[in-house]
């Protein structure tokens, strides 16, 4: 199992007491969770719950104010370069090198990741074919739709077969066919080699179908964590959907009827 990350610790991701502060605003507070080998861990939360801040701190975009982040035992802050070699990341917004084509962009990423030509080409071919990128592979990224950009980012994240995938709302702009492919791909991806996936979303249906465990973030604090079954027990519900469990645990269901009534009166 340790082979996945080539580190001494087989745990893909261990976040401990993570706090992130922007100026006077505390985005994340004392957050701890673990992504285990072979696991897809879903980070759920409303807008502004702290999901993206957490993910950005894992990939080195935001410096934690306190706490530690370890990727296969490597400290994400002090050993950033080695951590980035083990992580594939898809950002929430498709910010790319707009002046490059997907081929040129993937060549750059493959070069920085020191991939061999044959391996990089074979993976690019299989993913691009699966996502039907034939017509856009040599077009400037600036001219591509959001969904196509998202596909390019997914391919870039998978190109080096990283032992840890960090995906920030990765399915948002994808068409149904690509969403289906992604779900299948992720399920199979983590099944071998001790890999892990950290996955953020506010789409409960996706999390319900895909994630082995979920953590529910609310205003920067982890309210609950576990499998869907264990969360149902904790929320004292029967066979409710994850959305109902989520609303109950974050107490956001209390205001929903009133908000709907207010909207109806206007």
């Amino acid at each position: 199992m340790a082979a996945a990350g080539s580190g001494s610790d087989p745990t893909p991701l261990a976040v401990e007491n993570l706090s992130i502060v922007y100026g006077e605003r505390r985005a994340v507070e004392a957050l701890s969770f673990v992504v285990r080998p072979g696991e897809i861990y879903g980070l759920l939360g409303s807008n502004g719950a702290g999901k993206s801040s957490t993910i950005k701190s894992v990939v080195g975009l935001v410096r934690p104010s306190a706490g530690t982040i370890r990727v296969f035992g490597l400290n994400a802050v002090t050993d950033g370069l080695r951590v980035k070699q083990r992580v594939g990341y898809v950002p929430e917004t498709s910010l790319l090198y707009e002046a490059l084509t997907p081929r040129e962009f993937l060549e750059f990423v493959a070069g920085v990741r020191r991939l061999k030509r044959d391996a990089a080409s074979a993976r690019a071919r299989s993913y691009a074919t699966a996502f039907r990128l034939e017509a856009e592979f040599d077009e400037p990224i600036a001219s591509l739709s959001n969904g196509t950009r998202q596909k390019v980012l997914l391919i870039a994240a998978l190109l080096h077969q990283p032992p840890l995938l960090v995906l920030d709302e990765p399915l948002n702009a994808l068409d149904p066919r690509s969403v289906r492919i992604m779900k299948e791909l992720l399920s199979r991806y983590v099944a071998t080699g001790g890999r892990g996936v950290l996955f953020s979303t506010h789409t409960m249906e996706v999390a319900e179908q895909l994630c082995h465990r979920v953590g529910i973030l609310d205003r920067g604090v982890l309210r609950a964590e576990g499998t869907l079954a264990s969360l149902r027990v904790r929320a004292s519900t029967g066979d409710e959907t994850l959305e109902q469990v989520f609303l109950r645990l974050t107490r956001e269901d209390e205001g929903v009827p009133a908000a709907v009534r207010t909207l109806e009166q206007r």
């Binding site: 080195g60 370069l81 980035k84 990341y89 950002p91 910010l95 790319l96 090198y97 707009e98 990741r113």
Partner: peptide, 9 residues
Amino acid sequence: AYSYGRTLP
């Protein structure tokens, strides 16, 4: 693409 570039090794 500054933010993406910073996530690469």
